[in-house]
Each structure stands twice: as structure tokens, then as C-alpha cells.
Design a protein around this nucleic acid. Structure first.
Lengths: 168, 168
DNA sequence: TTGTCTGCAAACACTTTGCACTTTT
DNA sequence: AAAAGTGCAAAGTGTTTGCAGACAA
């Protein structure tokens, strides 16, 4: 879910819908708009939770009847969407997890090692610290990733704490 | 290399050498001190850079003549060392990278996507922010990981910037 | 038509595991 | 002697790739 409750398509921040922006991206690269790519962007744009390739593949198979796209196509399209700036990719517990990037405010995450859920939070200070540190090391920072891992309220109260392998 | 220049074995902070601590850990778990485990801890304790399983395996084969330990044993021992609190594990570009944990101050990293080197830095503020955020979400923070990726001085000046796949 | 895309199966990198044999305790 | 550890080969994961046929432009 967007962090900014006022977020909506068509605002100044987001001139194009994700699908439009992806189409634009493909066009400028001489790539084609296929029914698979269209189905994938549309599906992803409609949901706002974090997901991984396998989940997406399964979702496509159930919500849209029949085989919408094969596994390789899903992987290929996901990385195109990352290149297009629509999605953000991060690696948790050995698999890639994606979240919306386009039109969404920058944020970091709390990661529950019990239920493996990601909780978003924003902190302007984090960015400041990163900039300061980078500067003091003559390092050109391009991005940062901050993940605080631990247990969320639910997993703390209920006892169903799965074992927590920190692969973060 | 340790962040604290005054670090040395035998101080209050570090009562046991890594090898001793590992032996202690094994003993209390009914595990055995084999020549493979001894060779691995000794080797790791002697070097202070970040490394991955494959590098360690190769190092063991070259520096100590002959096959000191097989791949499975290296992997098994590394995860025991993590459990023992001697090593810290993080995943970068799809493979696990280890660094010393025992007796070392907490720190975060700058990650150069050019040469894939990790540069350490400490910031008390980061920990504060994590605590504050966790508290405001009723989340029990156990650890955090902050990685600032970008290009280090060397990779910025020399043009040999390898392509930077952000798998962080 | 032309060149890109797809899906399949196979290959991948990294890591883990089953099992017979060896070693520590 | 008993229990745990080792190495080998094989199996796993999640992801990528070569290629022939399918399809968008």
C-alpha cells in the first residue's frame, strides 16, 4: 500500500499509469508490447503488497484463468519492470522480493522473521546519514537499503514464531 | 580490519580468542573439535576481510597445502561459527558474505557495485532510528542491516565500472 | 516480413543433504 | 565402543539461458 494516502494516478508526481509508463519504456527500447507483458504489468499494478516471482506466477494462473505467462517470461518481465523504474527489488531469505517504486515515496522496512512480512516506514534521517557517511568516504551513494529485522506484534504475542534464519 | 584501533585479544571485551570461544561453543553443544573445524577457525581468525564460502575454500587449499576441508564441511562450519557468534553473515549479489562479529563493534556498510568491496562505517544514529521506528510499530528489533550502495573513489575515478546489478 | 518474444527444457550458481566411512571422545 | 563428523555425489532452490516456433510491428 502506498505510504502517502493522497497518492493517486494522474497527480503531478505520476503523470502516466504504470502500464503506460511501461509501454513507453518498451517502445523507446524497440521492445514489444505483448499480451504477457500487458497482463503482468496490469496484474502487478492492481496489487500493492510485496511479492516474489513465484507468487506472481501463481497469482497469474489463478486470477486470470489459464497460463498467462511462463516462469521465464515472468522473471524476464519483472526485471524489465525494475529497469523501467516501476518496481524495486530486494533480496530476502534467498529470494527476490518486489515492491512498487513508481510514484511511491522512498521508505525502508521492518522485516518480521516470524511471518516474513515487510512493514514500511519512512525516515528522512536515514537518507541524511547515508549522504553524510558517503561524503566522508568520497563514495558516490546511489541508493541504500535499511532493513530492521525482528518480530512484529502479532508474532510476538502469538507463539507461532517460526524459526528465524537471518538471511537478511 | 577492526574498526576500533585499540582492539586486541585479551581485553575486557574479548576474554577468549576466537578459536577458544568456538571450542567452548562446540563443547557446550556436545560437538567435537575436529582438525577441519580447527583449521577453519584458525584461518578465518587470521584474516579480517569479508569473504565468502568459495573464497575460504580456495584459501584453505592454497595456504595450507592439501585439502583441509571439503566444501560441505566449510559450509557447515561457517554456519556453526555464525551460531557461535564469531561471524556475521549477509547476502550480497546472491552469495553469502561473512565478516567477524566477535569482539567487533557494530557497524554498517558502503557497498561498491563496481568492485564489490564493502567499506565499514559506524553510526550511533542509525541504531537510534531503528529503535525509535521499531518502538513506534510495537516491533521487537533484533538487528538491522544498512547498506549504502554506489561507487567507491577508485571505481569513480578509474573508468572500470563493471555493470552494477543491484542485488542488494 | 522482420525481428522480437515466448515457452520448453536444460543449465546455472550457491548451498544443503543422504549415506557409508572415519574420527573424536 | 559409541556418537558425531567427514567427504562424496546427488539433490535442492531460485533464477537464467539456448533455441525453435509464435507473434507484434
Amino acid at each position: 500500500m502506498p505510504l502517502d494516502p493522497d497518492f493517486s494516478l494522474g497527480t503531478v508526481a505520476v503523470a502516466l499509469s504504470p502500464a503506460e509508463r511501461f509501454a513507453e519504456f518498451l517502445r523507446t527500447r524497440g521492445k514489444r508490447i505483448t499480451k504477457q507483458r500487458r497482463a503482468i504489468v496490469d496484474h502487478v499494478a492492481g496489487r500493492h503488497e510485496h511479492f516474489d516471482a513465484e507468487q506472481l506466477l501463481a497469482d497469474l494462473r489463478t486470477t486470470r484463468a489459464g497460463a498467462v505467462a511462463s516462469r521465464p517470461t515472468v522473471y524476464r518481465t519483472l526485471s524489465e519492470m525494475v529497469d523501467a523504474g516501476l518496481l524495486n527489488k530486494m533480496v530476502l531469505d534467498g529470494r527476490a522480493v518486489y515492491e512498487h517504486d513508481y510514484g511511491y515515496p522512498r521508505h525502508d522496512h521492518l522485516y518480521c522473521s516470524g511471518c516474513r512480512r515487510l512493514i514500511e516506514f519512512s525516515s528522512a534521517e536515514v537518507a541524511k546519514i547515508c549522504d553524510a557517511v558517503a561524503a566522508s568516504h568520497q563514495f558516490r551513494a546511489r541508493s541504500h537499503r535499511l532493513i530492521v529485522s525482528g518480530l512484529c506484534v502479532d508474532c510476538r504475542t502469538s507463539k507461532r514464531r517460526t524459526r528465524h534464519q537471518d538471511r537478511v
